[in-house]
């Protein structure tokens, strides 16, 4: 059973083609996520997301692998492999779905594959942020919301 998923949406005033390039190409990826990115928007292409420690200059790279490239509608990749060097084992699947919306594009993000059931609670962030006044308030909501998510499936 896998119901650990993060879902997010954002509207952008740009064509699906432009949005697709931004979410898929390493030269854009490094502008919105890691310090640097190496790879290609090609199915099966192995890529690296690279972070650089500002103080020590040391870098850390995380493997990702492109899974789907359906320009300009869908792009997905896996990352956070439990065995990063071999790109094997458990991993997270990030999917961008792009839908034309007016003159722009609706970008829908899902991140799934979290091994532990606890992860789906992360989607609470957007619903609870305004309401967190203390854990006494938060945790009851956590249970109710997650139950609703699960039973909706």
């Amino acid at each position: 059973m896998e119901y650990g998923t993060i879902e997010r949406e954002i509207q952008v005033q740009a064509s699906p083609e432009v949005a697709f390039a931004v979410v898929s190409r390493p030269e854009h990826l490094k502008e919105w996520w890691p310090d640097d990115a190496v790879g290609e928007a090609v199915v099966g292409a192995p890529g690296e997301l690279i972070w650089r420690d500002r103080e020590t200059g040391r870098t850390e790279s995380v493997a990702y692998t492109v899974v789907e490239v359906e320009e300009p509608r869908r792009f997905s990749f896996r990352w956070c492999y439990s065995d990063g060097d071999l790109r094997q084992g458990e991993s997270l699947l990030v999917t961008f779905e792009l839908t034309p919306l007016g003159a722009g594009t609706l970008i829908r993000l899902t991140e799934s594959g979290f091994r532990e059931l606890g992860w789906e609670a992360a989607v609470l962030e957007e619903h609870c942020r305004e309401h967190i006044e203390g854990w006494n308030h938060f945790v009851p909501r956590l249970g109710v919301y997650v139950d609703r998510l699960v039973s909706a499936r």
Binding site: V12, A14, S15, V18, V22, I107
Partner: peptide, 10 residues
Amino acid sequence: RIQRIAEAIQ
């Protein structure tokens, strides 16, 4: 950030 970049390119 994706939004900002895409809109600037557009």
